[in-house]
Nucleic acid binder design. Sequence first.
DNA 1: CGCCGCGGTGGGAAAAAGTGGGAAGGAATG
DNA 2: CATTCCTTCCCACTTTTTCCCACCGCGGCG
Lengths: 151, 151
Amino acid sequence: MFRGANKVTLDAKGRMAMPTRYREHIAERSNGRLIATVDSSDHCLLIYPLPEWEEIELKLRRLPTLNPAVRRLQRLMIGHAADLELDNSGRILVPPALREYAGLSRAAMLVGQGIRFELWDEAQWNEHREQWLKAEESVEELPPELSSLSL
Amino acid sequence: MFRGANKVTLDAKGRMAMPTRYREHIAERSNGRLIATVDSSDHCLLIYPLPEWEEIELKLRRLPTLNPAVRRLQRLMIGHAADLELDNSGRILVPPALREYAGLSRAAMLVGQGIRFELWDEAQWNEHREQWLKAEESVEELPPELSSLSL
DNA sequence: CGCCGCGGTGGGAAAAAGTGGGAAGGAATG
DNA sequence: CATTCCTTCCCACTTTTTCCCACCGCGGCG
């Protein structure tokens, strides 16, 4: 499982060094193969080991093609998915189109989220983080999914 | 499986280079033979390897012929299907009628969607993409197919 | 306090992919 | 039957991408 927020940098060619503590797990889980795609609700990227992504893709493809909401989600997620591979130095090359979508320049945050990572531009990550904290403070009514949660 | 968005160009003769990473799969799956047809709901083209298309065509032909919506879909999809073949340089020649339907000039996007590709005029792809993203932001009520999805 | 090693970073060279042009073959029309 | 136009195939050039190597900095250990 991937956890924790890591400060990472993208070099001029768009390469990002995967923090070493994840490399072994990725290597044995998926032979160094990852999939990056866009997050449809925030301007950040989602990065999955290949096997995990394939399950997601299957779920998406099984949905009815002629439903507009389904089609939209398929186009965004499958349509923007890029194959990535760890190179000999443990880096991945983030394609220009995805970099642009997430507003990635040099300073970025790689955030572990269980089966996947999220990759944020560092400044945007910090902004959103502030907002999430504020939102939690001023919560009055919890949605039913959360009201019975024990943490 | 096909995924990801690829910037491609149609040259003056209407030829499009298939990105190399897909070529091998297409070559062994269908011997380089593809079918292009129109998308009935958006002005883009759908491109299938021949075996996949044949299944789709079968599904379409099995539907009740007297239903007007069925008839319409059959006429659009089967009626516009064109045989394509990868040439020695890995390019396909997109017929003028289909180019016109999708408003294709020079800059285009080839978008992997599982068993098929979608081919969009680049400008139109970008416009639609903006709209889809906006729609995702302002989602209030998820359709039942999506409400329990975990990605 | 210094040296050794690993992780991170950058740049350069070789290979491959994309693009365009040209020539040859075939079909259609006058 | 000949000429012209269109299509298809092939070759060569340019640009991009990928792979590899070297350097730098920090941290740990002797």
